[in-house]
Design a protein around this nucleic acid. Structure first.
Lengths: 348, 348
DNA sequence: ATGAAAGCGCTAACAG
DNA sequence: CTGTTAGCGCTTTCAT
C-alpha cells in the first residue's frame, strides 16, 4: 500500500483499508458492497463487519470516474417572483430531492441567465457533473428539450412539449384543464351560473389549457361564456383590474383564476367594493399557495400533486439512466381542488 | 492512447484529445486550464484553440478524485410548512445557489429525517460527496455544528450558536432584535404607545431575540410592556387567539409579530372584529413573505437580507476551503423594514 | 467464490 | 516552460 492506513492518516478509509482489515482483496470488498450475492456468507459477514468498524463509505469521485456516472441530477431554478403567490417550484424541489434520494440520486441546483433558457446546462453536461436534468421552465417555449435531445442528454421535463406535440422525450405534467374544470363544476354545483375566468395572456399555453377547463365545464352546463373571460399578466394588480371590469360589465357571482396571484387580485376588488368573499362572490385560485392557505377567508385553490410529479419524474429518470433503457412517454396527472371559505355556501 | 479519440467515440473529449490536437503533452493542457501563467503565450493560444475546437471541459469526477474536492456544498432542506407564511429558506436557497456559482461551487440539496438533525450529513461527508455544508436549521439546538466540528468538516452556519456562544465556527445571522426594534420604533413614531408583541415560545432563542428588540424599543420610549406580550406556537390560529386575548385585556393599538404567520392571525382577528387594519390597529410581521406582499392591506414586515447572507456564507466558505485557510468568525446582518398599509397612517 | 491486473481522466511532483 | 511518472479510489474484465 502506498499510503498510510486510514486510522493513522486523517483521511477516510478506502477499499484497501477494509480489505486489509477483513483479510480479503480489494475486489472482494467492492463485491461485498455492489454484488453481495457473489460472496460466501461468512466472507460477506466479515467484510461487512470491517466496513462497519471503519465506517467505510465508497469515495464518490472514484466511483463516479469509474462508472461514468455522478448520481446527480441537475435542476435549474429561478428566483421566486416577489409580489406573487407562485410557489410551485419550491414545493416541487423538495419533493424531487426526497424522491431522488430514495432512488440514489442527489439534486444539484443551478441557475442561469433568465433571458437564456439554455445557459447553465451546457457546462454541467460537458463536465459530466450531472447524469441528467429535470427541466421545469417549459413555458419559455422549451428550447431546452430540443437542445438536450440534440446532445443526447438524458432529461425529463416537468411540463408538456406544447410547441412540439411530436416530441419523444419523457415528460410529466399536471392537467390544468381538468383542475379548472373541476373548480368550475364545484362552483356550478353551488348554484353559480355566471362564473368568470381570469387567466394569462393568450401566448401562455398553460394558461390556455387551464382556461379550456373552465370553458368546457361552462359549456357542459349549457351556460354562456362570452364576456366572462379576461386574459392578463400574472400579477395581483392585473387580477384586481380584470375583476373590476368583469364585475362592472358582466356581474359574475364567481371567479375561477389561473393562479392564486390573480385570485388575490379578485379578493382585493371584493374588499374594496365591500362585497363578501364567498357569500357575495366566490373565488377559486390555482396552486394552493401559502397565500391561499393563510389568507382570510381561505382561498379555495387547485392543488398540483407535486409529490406525485416528482415520483413520476424520478421513475422516468431511472428508466432513462438504467440498464436496460426504459423509455417513458408523457404522464399527465390530475390536480385536486382544495375547498376553503372563498367558495362560499351553496346558493340553493 | 488506449481509447479511440473523442471524435470517433461518442464520449466527451479528454485532456489527451486536446493534447494530441495541440501537439503538446497532457500536462501542458492541464496547466493551460489551471495555471495559464506557466505557459508561453503562443503555446497557450494553441492549446486554447484546441480546447475550443473540441469543446473540451475537464471531467469533474476525475478532477474531484485527484484534488479531493467536489466543489459541491451540501444544504439540507426541509419541507415548507403548509399553512404558514414561512418562506425564508426558499429565498435563501436561490441566493446561495447564485452566489456559490460565482465562487465556483454548486449546491447539492439533501433531506433528512426531520426528527434527527444529523441525518443526511454523515453519508455525504464520508463519501466525500461535498466539500462543505451550509447549516441552516440551527433553531433545533444546533447539534450539527458540534458534530461537524468534531469531524473537522468544513461548514458555515446560517444562524448564531445560541446554545454555545463560545463556538468558534463561522456563522452568519440576521439581527432579529434590531429588526423588531426598528419595527417597534416605526410604530412609536406613528404615535402608537400600546404596542403588543406576539412571538414564539420561550424555548426559541430566535423568538426571544426578536422579542428583545420590541422590548428595548418600548423601554427606550419609556413605555410599559407588561401584559402586552404573548408567546405562542407559530401558526395563524395561535396568532389569532393571542391577538384576541391581548385586545381584550390590554387594548393595544399595534402589534409587532415574530413572523408573518402570526401577523396573519392578527389580521384575522381584526377582520372578525370589524377593526380596520392599519387605521384602527397597526400590524407588522417578520420575513416579508409572499403573503405579506399580496394580502390586502399589505402587511408591513421585517425583511431579512438573504442575498447578503448568502454572500457572507460563501465568503466564509471560501475562507474555510481556500489555501491558506482564512477563518471567519460570526457576521451579523441587519434586516430592513418594508412598510405597507398595515402600518396605518400617522396617529398624530 | 476470490484475486490480479488494468485503467477511468485528471493533476502534483519532479525532471529536463 | 514542457514532458514524464505516478497515483487519487474505484470497478470491470479475466484468471484462478
Amino acid at each position: 500500500m502506498s499510503r498510510t492506513s486510514a486510522r493513522t492518516s486523517g483521511l477516510p478509509p478506502t477499499l484497501a483499508d477494509v480489505a486489509e482489515r477483513a483479510g480479503v482483496s480489494r475486489q472482494t470488498v467492492s463485491n461485498a458492497v455492489n454484488n453481495p450475492d457473489l460472496l460466501r456468507a461468512d466472507t460477506l459477514l466479515r467484510v461487512q463487519q470491517a466496513i462497519a468498524d471503519l465506517g467505510y463509505l465508497p469515495n464518490r469521485a472514484a466511483r463516479n470516474l469509474r462508472t461514468r456516472a455522478s448520481h446527480l441530477i441537475g435542476l435549474r431554478i429561478q428566483a421566486a417572483q416577489e409580489g406573487t403567490a407562485n410557489a410551485t417550484m419550491d414545493r416541487f424541489v423538495h419533493s424531487l430531492v426526497e424522491t431522488s434520494r430514495e432512488a440514489g440520486y442527489h439534486v444539484l441546483l443551478f441557475t442561469g441567465d433568465p433571458t437564456d433558457p439554455l445557459s447553465g446546462y451546457e457546462d454541467l453536461l460537458r463536465s459530466t457533473a450531472v447524469d441528467a436534468f429535470v427541466v421545469t421552465d417549459t413555458y419559455l417555449g422549451n428550447p431546452q428539450a430540443e437542445w438536450l435531445d440534440g446532445r443526447r442528454a438524458p432529461f425529463v421535463a416537468f411540463g408538456r412539449p406544447w410547441e412540439n406535440p411530436g416530441a419523444t422525450h419523457a415528460w410529466v405534467d399536471v392537467d390544468g384543464a381538468a383542475g379548472c374544470e373541476s373548480a368550475t363544476r364545484h362552483l356550478l354545483a353551488k348554484g353559480h351560473e355566471k362564473i368568470a375566468w381570469i387567466g394569462w395572456r393568450k401566448d401562455s399555453r398553460i394558461g390556455e389549457d387551464r382556461r379550456a377547463g373552465w370553458h368546457r365545464a361552462m359549456k357542459e352546463a349549457g351556460l354562456p361564456t362570452s364576456g366572462l373571460a379576461s386574459r392578463v399578466e400574472d400579477t395581483v394588480a392585473s387580477g384586481r383590474e380584470a375583476s373590476e371590469v368583469l364585475l362592472d360589465e358582466a356581474a359574475p357571482t364567481a371567479f375561477v383564476c389561473a393562479s392564486d396571484t390573480l385570485a388575490m387580485g379578485v379578493l382585493h376588488t371584493l374588499g374594496l367594493r365591500g362585497l363578501r368573499v364567498g357569500d357575495d362572490v366566490a373565488v377559486v385560485g390555482f396552486d394552493d399557495s401559502q397565500v391561499a392557505q393563510v389568507v382570510r377567508p381561505g382561498l379555495s385553490s387547485v392543488r398540483q400533486p407535486l409529490e406525485d410529479v416528482a415520483i413520476e419524474v424520478v421513475t422516468a429518470l431511472e428508466g432513462l439512466l438504467g440498464r436496460p433503457r426504459v423509455a417513458q412517454q408523457g404522464v399527465l396527472l390530475t390536480p385536486s381542488l382544495v375547498v376553503r371559505d372563498s367558495s362560499g355556501p351553496d346558493r340553493v
